[in-house]
Design a protein around this nucleic acid. Structure first.
Length: 170
DNA sequence: GAATAGATCCGC
DNA sequence: CGGATCTATTCA
């Protein structure tokens, strides 16, 4: 099985491209291997649904940084959501990991909050990590190209006309 | 300082 | 549907 660790070049691509290409990739987090089945693209420029659309804050500053970093935010007082930053420094954009499959337990982690709870990802410990140069937290490619479908994004109230959600066809 | 809404999930 | 209860924005 081919196991190719993604380089920063991958995340430097346009965000919509990265969101599509991430499907079928595997997140290695400590001893967990999560195959990504669902992503959403968030573009800071002209995307009202993006946290960074109204300027830089302490929470969103990571999205303005370099591609290939993790962006973990805390929401609703209970759940964390994992994103990967895309685009060069100065451009706020990220891909939200909405769902995946744990390759060991075969659990279907359908939902960003669920996924992060399973992995034990927290904003305090795992935000703004460089996943290109990290021992226990990175993404690798198995060389597979799953067929996917494209739908409007979920759980937001604005910009729902943008079909920037991608999920692997079952 | 207070009020409110939000990229969520679970239990009743 | 309501609860959990953090973060950022808006209003006073």
């Amino acid at each position: 099985m081919r196991m190719l660790k993604l380089k920063r070049d991958f995340f430097m691509q346009p965000t919509l491209t990265v969101a599509q290409e991430l499907l079928g990739k595997v997140i290695n987090f400590k001893d967990y291997h999560i195959q990504i089945t669902e992503t959403e693209a968030y573009l800071g420029d002209n995307d009202a649904a993006c946290h960074a659309s109204r300027g830089i804050t302490k929470r969103t500053q990571v999205m303005f940084g370099q591609a290939g970093f993790s962006y973990v935010y805390f929401i609703y007082g209970m759940y964390h959501c994992l994103n990967f930053v895309t685009e060069p420094k100065g451009t706020a954009a990220a891909v939200l990991i909405r769902g995946g499959i744990d390759l060991k337990s075969k659990l279907n982690l359908n939902g960003p909050g669920k996924l992060c709870r399973f992995l034990g990802i927290t904003k305090d410990e795992h935000n703004a990590l460089d996943i290109i140069n990290h021992e226990q937290f990175f993404v690798y490619d198995l060389g597979m190209k799953p067929t996917f479908i494209q739908t409007p994004r979920i759980g937001i109230k604005v910009a729902t006309d943008k079909p920037w959600r991608f999920l692997v066809k079952d």
